[in-house]
Nucleic acid binder design. Structure first.
Lengths: 221, 221
DNA sequence: TCACCAGTTAATATCGATATTTTTAAGAGT
DNA sequence: ACTCTTAAAAATATCGATATTAACTGGTGA
């Protein structure tokens, strides 16, 4: 009767499908930074018409993943260390702000969501990396989800994605970081559910800055 | 030979033209908040095809001026008091951040730009309101332009526009505010060129909050 | 050798028409 | 009267083709 099972994941509109695919390809680095994105080429890759491709690219400019040069097409957003550090710093500022607001307005529902998303993230640790990444983002966003400011959360989500992109671009060869990521997440969670804003923020920012320094080193090499 | 004089202001691509026009119409309230934006209707209004309209609308979603509902078209972003207050607060936070950074990194060039843009704003006070608004935005953005963080500046510009939109939506009938806007601008400028970050921020935020309270009152009525 | 200027190629931007989907309206059955 | 189903209308989304614009190439004159 319904097609939810069959079509799970497949988006209703061609535009959304193209948007998702392109977004993923840019975030993972399948489409390298700065690369020209030719409509015809993408049209073939995505097996759809020019209009959805074009519209998807327009939408991706919002996310700062694609640059649009009038009359001259699209290209994947460039990447460089300065931009990375800008993102990292801005992200730390905005996420701290959002986390403090979330904790200040804490509710049982929010708290329970933290527990749940954290649990799911742990569970997915063994599975496919894409599954984990998804759960990881969900957990981090859950931390901020009670800030009361959807726009702030949106900015944070955007910066999160941009950061992930740099992680994928930079961490090409080298193995996963040696730090105990799981422990860092537990620390953050613990502080949050205890409404300890200072500690939660300190842990969160340490979590980001450690990854940041690691990536910055990779980018030099 | 060339058409620069004739075509001044007319954008090169139909998409950009549509983008500019629609943006303006939403900011000024010519397209009311929440209104359904039918392609066919806009196609007639803008005298262009469906593709440019569609693409312009997609671009406007980045600016949070248009909402896209998959398979169900576009509509002008809704407006309500909660959203307005969210914008105001976020704007105060981000602009303070950017202004402090700008002052901390002050250079003669930046300082001179402040003087210039302020002067131009004063000059344009008598002229057409649209001219003044343009100069007003330029001045305010110049204050933040030395923050060293293009993304932060972009967010501020976005919030600025959203705020202006509410000003246009709310201040329908009532006359321009009685406050001495010019004096407030001078205060901000003075503090900035003296590298007095605390005072500059205090003045800037006061400037925003006063307008904000005024608008909030309008919105109740 | 180099800058400059056609002519050619390639890519973008745009149009008009069609397929899909949603919304509206109407009718049948309970 | 009310809901459910079904037909008609309207609007969105998409396609394929064309016009417009930018990029390239090779040759010409200093």
């Amino acid at each position: 009767m319904n097609m939810n099972d069959e079509m799970a994941g497949k988006e209703s509109s061609a535009t959304r499908g193209a948007y998702m695919t392109l977004r993923d390809m840019i975030l993972t680095g399948a489409l390298p930074a700065g690369q020209k994105l030719k409509i015809e080429q993408l049209r073939g890759l995505l097996k759809t018409g020019a209009s959805p491709v074009r519209e998807a690219l327009s939408l991706l400019t919002s996310d700062m993943l694609v640059e649009r040069i009038d009359q001259r097409g699209f290209r994947a957003a460039p990447a460089n260390k300065a931009n990375f550090e800008e993102i990292l710093e801005l992200r730390c500022t905005l996420e701290e702000l959002a986390l403090r607001k979330s904790i200040a307005a804490a509710t049982p529902q929010w708290e329970e969501q933290l527990i749940l998303t954290h649990h799911r993230m742990r569970k997915s640790a063994g599975q496919d990396i894409a599954i984990f990444e998804e759960a990881h983002k969900t957990f981090h966003m859950a931390l901020l989800a009670n800030s009361g400011s959807p726009m702030l959360e949106r900015y944070c989500a955007q910066l999160y994605d941009l950061n992930i992109r740099y992680r994928n671009l930079a961490a090409g060869g080298s193995k996963y970081q040696s730090r105990d990521i799981a422990a860092e997440h537990e620390e953050i969670l613990e502080a949050a559910v205890q409404y300890n804003a200072d500690r939660a923020c300190a842990c969160l920012l340490k979590h980001y800055r450690l990854t940041g320094e690691y990536l910055a080193r990779e980018m030099d090499a």
